[in-house]
């Protein structure tokens, strides 16, 4: 009896947490259909704000920019990050390895404003015009460390015996790398790419500093719109983004669980 009560309390607590977590998102979505034009007093159902959003070429270009920046920066960051992870993994000296890892983590723990401000100084000194290039470089820069952190554990999990076996069987260094190491750390690389993607899509503060006046990403645009007041176009946009996020999460979840199943099956077979 007492146990049952405890479970009930747990469910209620978790229910409230989930409610509060999702409430703002559904609040935005709900009022995106409000013909009244405000985030209160639901008038009647309308798709007007969606129509307005899709008619807003400036906004569509910004969405496109945001996606291009995210994909490009995640791709470059993944390449640099994977190289870095492999380099660190191959390091023999424990102290230098620890030093490099500490340097790696600086950008992860640095406050966004500091990253933004220091990159602004860097780009100004280097003479890089603020805009697409500076935003792309900044996004690559702050995504690299997370890729390293996602890939490195996978490398450390690699059994030395597999690599030795491949070399004994006559595989070249390149062969060991492409045929043995890379396939085994692919889940980590995917996870790193995905994290880099979300870092880029979600970033506001750094972009805000290095974006200049001609170029804008979604976060920066939402900020300037929100400062001007409520516009239900933002609500419509958030509905669309929420749906895309859910689809991405479901896709990611399937990829990961499929990979885990595959791995589990392989391990099982070996046993």
């Amino acid at each position: 009896m007492a146990k049952k009560q405890k479970i009930d309390f747990a469910s209620i607590y978790l229910f409230i947490v989930f409610l509060i977590l999702y409430l703002p998102i559904f609040y935005l979505i709900y009022y995106s259909f409000n013909s009244g034009g405000k985030m209160y007093n639901f008038d009647s159902f309308t798709l007007e704000w969606y129509r307005e959003l899709f008619g807003n070429t400036r906004m569509l270009i910004i969405v496109l920019n945001t996606i291009i920046i995210a994909l490009l920066s995640a791709a470059f960051a993944t390449i640099i990050g994977v190289c870095g992870a492999i380099g660190i993994w191959l390091m023999k000296n424990r102290i230098s390895r620890q030093t490099v890892l500490s340097l790696n983590n600086i950008l992860i723990v640095s406050p966004d404003v500091v990253i933004g401000a220091s990159f602004l100084l860097l780009f100004t000194i280097a003479g890089i015009k603020l805009g697409f290039t500076s935003v792309l470089l900044a996004h690559i820069a702050f995504s690299v460390p997370i890729v390293v952190l996602m890939v490195l554990p996978k490398l450390q999990e690699l059994p030395q015996s597999i690599i030795d076996a491949a070399q004994d069987l006559g595989a070249s260094h390149w062969g060991v790398f492409t045929k043995v190491i890379l396939p085994l750390i692919t889940p980590g690389i995917f996870a790193g790419f995905f994290m880099a993607l979300t870092y880029s899509l979600d970033d506001f503060a750094v972009t805000f500093f290095v974006t200049g006046s001609g170029f804008s990403t979604l976060s920066v645009e939402i900020y300037s719109m929100a400062r001007r007041g409520v516009s239900l176009e933002i609500n419509a946009l958030s509905t669309i983004l929420f749906v895309i996020t859910i689809l991405l999460v479901i896709g990611y979840y399937f990829i990961v669980s499929k990979q885990n199943n595959g791995q589990g099956a392989r391990l099982g077979a070996r046993k």
């Binding site: 947490v17 989930f18 977590l21 999702y22 409430l23 703002p24 998102i25 609040y27 935005l28 009022y31 985030m39 209160y40 979300t198 899509l201 979600d202 506001f204 979604l218 976060s219 939402i222 900020y223 929100a226 409520v230 933002i234 946009l237 958030s238 983004l241 929420f242 996020t245 859910i246 991405l248 999460v249």
Partner: peptide, 19 residues
Amino acid sequence: IIMPSWINLLLKAYAFIGI
């Protein structure tokens, strides 16, 4: 629990302007 953190930060802040 993690999913809301993938919704753009600014959108969540904006939602609270309404709420």
